[in-house]
Amino acid sequence: MTDDQPAPPADLPTHVDLAQDFADSGVAEVLADLDRELVGLAPVKARIRETAALLLVDRARRRLGLATETPTLHMSFTGNPGTGKTTVALKMAALLHRLGYVRKGHLVTVTRDDLVGQYIGHTAPKTKEVLKKAMGGVLFIDEAYYLYRAENERDYGQEAIEILLQVMENNRDDLVVILAGYADRMDRFFASNPGFRSRIAHHIEFPDYSDGELLHISEGMLSRQNYTLDDAARAAMAQYIAARRGQPHFANARSIRNALDRARLRQANRLFGEAKGPLDAAALSTLTEPDIRASRVFAGGLDVDRASRQAAAE
């Protein structure tokens, strides 16, 4: 600091202890939670760590009177379905709450239907209602690009966008907006709504999970419900993941969760049909190879998808 700069007012502290701040804010817990609960997603975790560091430093600067403006905190999460966007948004809300950037830290998840009305004059109150509910917390707009319909210039989505932009700008202290959706469609959405791009400071991309990570995730999901895979079933699951990825409507962790739900169904059915005597806990909680192998994914996918692919090939 040079001499000609004004001295900070007397009531401000002259130095801050960032490590102490970090420990006091409870941010470390949120970050540890994030690491523990989410498999993979290394670039996302790195970005969140950076964001947390930035906000912590910014808070310290404000305390010293070096910065007065609230930083722009609106974000966009882009990535394929089932890559953990909603989960990370929840963590982000907790993080911002711990750092004192939002007062309540609740997450309000909405899609186009919650914001856009069905007739003239319906959209504005609806959007405002949602925004009011999200104040003091985080508004998570899933598949945000549906708000803008390029093919219909009288679409009410445009009205919702205008109100959203206005509140994002004027009530920056009151709420944080996170837009989420597929990467390519979000890019197009931002291209046609430059107002959004400039108001969003943090763009975070969610990569697809690798096969190994998905296997790890599937075991984590099962162990939370007190199920296990035996060795043959684990091998089958690995093949299942590789096969499922090549088929339509693959939604990363969500596909895995659905597959496991169906495997549990088949396991229950198998136990019911085969069991002669009493079953022990291990039998009730082990998924075996046939439970996984029976999936239609190994037969080339759903009948409707197979039919449409054959039609396309012919």
């Binding site: 007062r103 309540k104 009011k132 509910k133 104040m135 003091g136 917390g137 202290d173």
Partner: peptide, 10 residues
């Protein structure tokens, strides 16, 4: 069902 008073001021 608004948890935060910013909505009231708004």
């Amino acid at each position: 069902d608004n948890p935060d008073a910013a909505a009231v001021v708004f």
